[in-house]
Design a protein around this nucleic acid. Sequence first.
DNA 1: TGTACATCAGTGAACGCGCGTTCACTGATGTAC
DNA 2: TGTACATCAGTGAACGCGCGTTCACTGATGTAC
Lengths: 203, 203
Amino acid sequence: MTKDPYHHGDLAAALVGAALEEVRQVGAEKVSLRGVAATLKVSPSAAYHYFPDKDALLGATGGAVFELFGQRMQEAFESISGDGRQAVEGRLSALAMAYINFARDEPHLFRLAFGAYCVTPIGDKFMDLSEAGLAGTLLIRALDDLQRLGVIAPEARQHGEVLCWSAVHGMATLILEGHISELAVPALLDAIRFALAMDGKVA
Amino acid sequence: MTKDPYHHGDLAAALVGAALEEVRQVGAEKVSLRGVAATLKVSPSAAYHYFPDKDALLGATGGAVFELFGQRMQEAFESISGDGRQAVEGRLSALAMAYINFARDEPHLFRLAFGAYCVTPIGDKFMDLSEAGLAGTLLIRALDDLQRLGVIAPEARQHGEVLCWSAVHGMATLILEGHISELAVPALLDAIRFALAMDGKVA
DNA sequence: TGTACATCAGTGAACGCGCGTTCACTGATGTAC
DNA sequence: TGTACATCAGTGAACGCGCGTTCACTGATGTAC
């Protein structure tokens, strides 16, 4: 149901969508408001009806990327069903892999989402993953499941959040920026498993 | 021994130095070649005698930052002397802290050093920390010492490199970009200690 | 010691460019009567 | 049902800016004789 050219259906959303696509291709630093407008065959000044300035547009775009990222995480999480030990362990790995793959496959989007553009104010709690969006909630669920099944001990559970998040995010960015090879990923997954004492170290 | 204005002693180095200072203050994306030249009271075109273009200058600057980062790591490492268990454990923590502090104190420099500007080609080996500069070598030394003292088991040692590097780098960037609070740092250090089974899990 | 000259290291004016943003405007829309 | 009009959603020309880069140049330097 494409509208006729003059009155756009939802220009704000269209701008964000176009900006996202532009960022994906060339990176946020090379995206211009004019270019985005041109993509939509709309005059640059039209954007100012919806966003106070270019930064606001990019900020909104960052938000959209963050949501996309959350969806990918969810797909990964849901790709493995079941409540057995294997399924639950697999879910944690799947999350980690999806995180890293997103960074590798969409480097520009990843940088926008986790870079300086989307600085969310941090609340009182020094680490509340549930505020970190869908990805955080899913990690919590995976870890909870592991503990419930007795795969990991309470002490491991306690450290799981910081450790998993930091390690996976670190590996993702290191790969992204070319400081480490992708081949290191299995080693990291092993390391995490070892770190959470999932190899039977804990009775 | 400042030379007279016309023939600069070593303009190439001076440009890198000025660029580094500029990056430190405003971030690489806002640094202009013209601005750097102006800082040195030199015409913009003079820079082209030493660097083919602006990117080359920023690349060299990134290299300089990387060295500076290495020095900071070394200072941290050497700030703790001794070969006892406490000293060796302390060295690992000191490295982690220095890494994270550098990111927090010099966000713009950190981004330049670890961002897209300094993509070092990765060799065959999927992870050779010694190629990752001074910081990598120091981490290896710290882990080796821990193993030699029997503080960590060989299996933990094996996973130590990826885990420590990823986790610390991840926490550093997460803090840097405002996605997690600094208050999470002690928790991460605990988690790493736990992960390496330094709490006596391993006999 | 003095001079000629090649080389080095910088100047400074100019180029073209694409950008973010503004402003007064006009075409489209929908509602009241 | 038709018309007047307020409102909404876009246009397009223009602004000023700072940038990277080029080019022909000139001032300083050091070496050969």
